[in-house]
Amino acid sequence: MTAPAIAPDAIAYDDVTVRRAGNAIVDRVTLKIAQGSFVALTGASGAGKTTLLRLVNRMVRADAGRVRVFGEDVADADPPELRRGIGYASQGVGLFPHWTVAENIAAVPWLLRHAPRRRAARVAELLDLVELPRDFGDRFPRQLSGGQASRVGLARALAAEPRLLLLDEPFGALDPETRVSLADKISELHDLAHLTTLMVTHDLADALTRVQRVIVCDAGRIVADGTPASLVASTHPAVVALIAAPLDQADKLAALRHPELVR
């Protein structure tokens, strides 16, 4: 037994199953993510990684088992309230096209009825944090580049100072240079804001050098879980395939074998 004084895990999956049309897309997963950790959730497409992420803010409901966030069962929470407390940057960013950048960033504070002045101050702070000029606040999303939009999405997710940040494929369709700078920015904000960050990504290259823990899913189950370096030892075909996957393969292997060199 652990001592009761120890802080609960940021996220705890307890024997969780999600079924779609009779198939288990998340299959009896038990998993704990400690507070303050930076975790990448990866796997081939259809492996169930996004579903695992979306269980946390109840965008998906578990058919069996429990998901706890900071010790609270999400099934007992009011979904909008739960979600306002968790930073979420979705696949494709999903900025509201009819709202300005400032309004997009201030969306959650607005939902939480923060005062206009407090919201404006927070928007300015976040624009600085994601390194966008302050006058971008008046722009509309259509006037942003892909990288800029991703940064605004990140700022929106952090606006209400959540303790937990969920990122679903944050690098989407960005060009390599932008990916690197965004990954650095995420990593920096993770440390700065004392966040627990769970990030879904299908591409290990950007994550490996920055995260502390990589979880590999396959067919709804977890097939590998450990430090980036430990993955090399895995003999599971899904992990092997992932490591052997396309794109600058040599770099990846180098990063896996000698993370200290890349860092």
Binding site: M59, P80, Y88, S90, G94, H98, A107
Partner: peptide, 27 residues
């Protein structure tokens, strides 16, 4: 209305009503 916009509206914690009035109807 693009699905990722709806997903974002849900994900940041809008209620159904807020999503309809703030996002779906204007778009």
């Amino acid at each position: 209305v693009p699905p990722e916009t709806l997903d974002a509206a849900d994900g940041i914690g809008m209620t159904r009503r807020q999503r309809l009035i703030q996002v779906e109807l204007p778009l």
